[in-house]
Design a protein around this nucleic acid. Structure first.
Lengths: 250, 250
DNA sequence: CCGCTTCCTTGACTTGGATCAAAATTCATG
DNA sequence: CATGAATTTTGATCCAAGTCAAGGAAGCGG
């Protein structure tokens, strides 16, 4: 495991300086609400590879991902693993109404969390409208994403799974960077082949083979094994098996 | 498609008489809030097999399932289908913040919905705390369920998938009926083999074969092809591949 | 009661992805 | 920069589930 390439220059610890201020659970907070949140918040950092919490452990905080990538995974007794969540900047971790976590939460890159003690956070949720409203919206988005993922897991071929995964990353890249339209996209793969396999319900060998196949067919170009160039997004979309005209997201 | 065996004796249309009053989105409402909800509600009925809304269609209401079973499904261009939600009594349909649905919603049995016009409902959500709080809790539960489902889709064998599905139904039966403990459980299968296949990411032939295998091995007894008897729940649980001591749910 | 349709079961065969095995790259560290 | 560990690629083989095909059972309308 290695460094976080895009470490945020976020030093003051002041909400007004926060890179996820307008996308996270606090997005809609007014000054007063923000102040109340600020009173119960604290930062925690985890290095790449570190486990943030184990499934079943008590969790006395909830948190927003400020920077880095974390995963939620479930593991069966015999070691089979399935990733059930991929957490990026501004995503929320934990349930305000539950003291225990249901999944292993792992830092994939170096991760910075903005944590809130659970009880006070829950009280704030009851007392102020804007946090709950935003959290509801984010949770509904998560639910939609997990349902898209179900289609991938249940019905797509290995090649389509890989293409879909790459397309999701590429789409996110376009959104964050704001640069739309341009058909060519470059981005970093935050996951190992094994983690991709856990995400997609495949083995790492199959992931590797399909990546090679997509490369061979010119759908993607691998600069640096973890750095992906998609010369033509439309071409990649064709490989996902999804309806071309965005029907899936409607 | 046929009748709904357990049609509710719910005639007045009055919330105080409602079978899902204390489990649905209105569960926490006080008298005043309930009155406001009552002002914008209306009932709609759908017969078994009927499509409630098509993916991509505009939807000017949200709703609670009062009675019956409905499904959310995604369909790919070439006809591959994946069920992404199974909606039972008290479950919620739609997003207050979206005017279009992302999935086909279908009545599997006869279904009664308690609908709220979307805009007024959204306003109510902003104005009163209890509806949003309950909706958040329900959405988080849905998200957990869909993540459990992902593990099933991504990593379990066909036999484990079937066993897991039956176990989920059996568990729900125990909860609603309140009768805990007793190892033997009987319940109706609300889905056809094909719908089960869509749920589990299998073909209907594989579902049929695995059902036969579980019957042959004495894990289940089929009274009436749709009426399942589970003589020993522990035995069924063993077949799901999940951790025996509830570790999965923690 | 007959014929039709829908749903379910079972059999024979094929195949996509898993498994097993080994080698090639990449990366970290003394 | 040599050594060893981790990660990735590729090949050979196998098997669980898909596909194709044929019947059987249940329910329904005439």
């Amino acid at each position: 495991m290695s460094m976080n390439p895009s470490a945020p220059s976020f030093r003051t610890g002041d909400c007004s300086d926060c890179p996820i201020r307008h996308r996270a659970v606090c997005a809609r907070c007014d000054d007063d609400e923000l102040q109340q949140l600020e009173a119960i918040k604290f930062y925690r950092k985890f290095s790449a590879g570190e486990v943030i919490i184990w499934a079943g452990d008590p969790m006395d905080f909830v948190a927003s991902v400020v920077a880095g990538v974390a995963t939620l995974t479930q593991t069966m007794e015999d070691g089979r693993r399935q990733m059930v969540g991929l957490l990026l900047g501004s995503d929320f971790i934990g349930r305000p109404d539950r003291s225990h976590v249901a999944y292993d939460v792992t830092a994939i890159t170096d991760v910075t969390l903005c944590c809130f003690r659970r009880k006070p956070f829950r009280d704030l949720l009851m007392a102020t409208p804007h946090i709950g409203q935003r959290l509801l919206e984010m949770t509904l988005d998560e639910l939609d994403a997990s349902r898209e993922w179900m289609l991938i897991l249940g019905r797509k071929t290995a090649r389509e799974k890989i293409a879909s995964f790459l397309f999701i990353l590429a789409r996110r890249e376009t959104l964050t960077d704001g640069k739309a339209g341009g058909t060519s996209i470059t981005f970093d793969l935050p996951l190992t082949r094994e983690a991709m396999a856990d995400y997609l319900g495949l083995t790492l060998e199959t992931v590797s083979r399909q990546m090679s196949a997509l490369k061979r067919d010119g759908v993607i170009v691998l600069a640096d094994k973890r750095r992906i160039v998609v010369p033509d997004c439309k071409r990649l979309l064709d490989e996902t098996g999804d309806d071309a005209d965005g029907g899936v997201l409607a």
